[in-house]
Nucleic acid binder design. Structure first.
Lengths: 196, 196
DNA sequence: TTATAGATTGTCAAGACTGACAATTTGATT
DNA sequence: AATCAAATTGTCAGTCTTGACAATCTATAA
């Protein structure tokens, strides 16, 4: 006997606007007014649905992580091949050819990470996802090379993910393309270790 | 016939205070007032010596890079051994045991990097240093393993630096220590490729 | 001693942000 | 049609920020 609850609509609508504003103005440079305008709602609604700024930031971290989680899951589901071939496909996915624009999500994730000291809750959220992500990758590598030792699989998974991170982190700087080749080369070299 | 020029004193004094404030409040969260107080000077002096906010940010990037450059240079000078031993020493330096606090400089560098889109000049400054840094590392690896191919040396140098970056980037999240071991393990594995 | 470049301080207006609360509207349910 | 939970809008005071400029002080060279 009341108006329909729009929380499920407004919350992501606002958080996505928040993300775009963070990409454009920085985490603390994005004002509530700008976010509200970007979302196409009145500022008071931000407060209504998400609370004050600090609470919004935590919610933003949760949403970003949620998106990454879904993307990770979907990527893994869509990965062709089995065993070592599957690993190869994963590498192709992680280190695509050409140059790409830094995604809003990556910029936001970076901004959140560099704010972890100020927002410990954000740190907890991010760490949770990181560990989950490493486990997934270890799974793929482990199945790809069942004969490899566990410690080796862990090290290689960590290494490949590191390469991917740094890669996505440096690309916005406009680094020469040669580095992209180095990234994939190093990743392949790491994987070759597992082969024996 | 005038008062002595304090630019050389005040400029770093203010920029270091700026750095600490960025670490504490974020790049755009740090107000000029806070910076002035942290530096122990009046806000008007920030303007006098460094101009407005945007100019201060560029100056901050220059200072941070300058510090990294000096640290890199000093590290290389202090590196013991020759050839492959020197490479080993470098790895020990890059992946120390135990957990450490994230340095103000690292936090600031991260904040600056995630603001590159808003401050293109900052991007130019950072990229310059990155390229320089990669070259230095390639030099060490190349001298350590003269028989290795150039492309291989480049890939390994890029890989090892990537591992180090991600390592310092994730540590503030409070990741389990196992990852630190993985980082060094992967780095060693990469270097071993050059030997073979 | 004095002139002066440059350091330092003071002050101001204009504007932007935030958090909070009151008031109003809406639409499903009964 | 009456009701009521929830959405939406409006408004406000207080605080913070910034850029600018005027005024004052001070140490050195002449």
């Amino acid at each position: 006997m009341a108006r329909p609850d729009l929380t499920a609509v407004r919350t992501p609508q606002i958080l996505d606007a928040f993300a775009r504003c963070v990409a454009r103005y920085g985490l603390e440079g994005a004002s509530l007014e700008q976010i509200a305008e970007e979302a196409g709602v009145k500022r008071s609604l931000l407060r209504h649905y998400l609370g004050n700024r600090d609470e919004m930031i935590v919610a933003l971290a949760e949403r970003v992580v949620e998106r990454y989680r879904q993307e990770l899951e979907e990527t893994m589901r869509a990965l062709p091949g089995t065993g070592a071939n599957r690993v190869g496909a994963l590498l192709d996915y992680m280190f695509p050819e050409g140059i790409w624009e830094p995604s809003v999500e990556n910029v936001v994730a970076d901004a959140l990470l560099s704010a972890v000291e100020r927002y410990p809750e954000v740190g907890v959220i991010m760490r949770g996802f990181m560990e989950e992500m490493f486990e997934v990758y270890e799974g793929v590598f482990g199945e790809g090379y069942p004969e490899a030792e566990k410690a080796q699989v862990e090290a290689v998974a960590y290494g490949v993910v590191s390469l991917s991170f740094t890669h996505e982190w440096l690309m916005p700087l406009g680094m020469p393309v040669a580095y992209a080749r180095s990234a994939k080369g190093a990743a392949k070299a790491l994987v070759k270790i597992l082969a024996g």
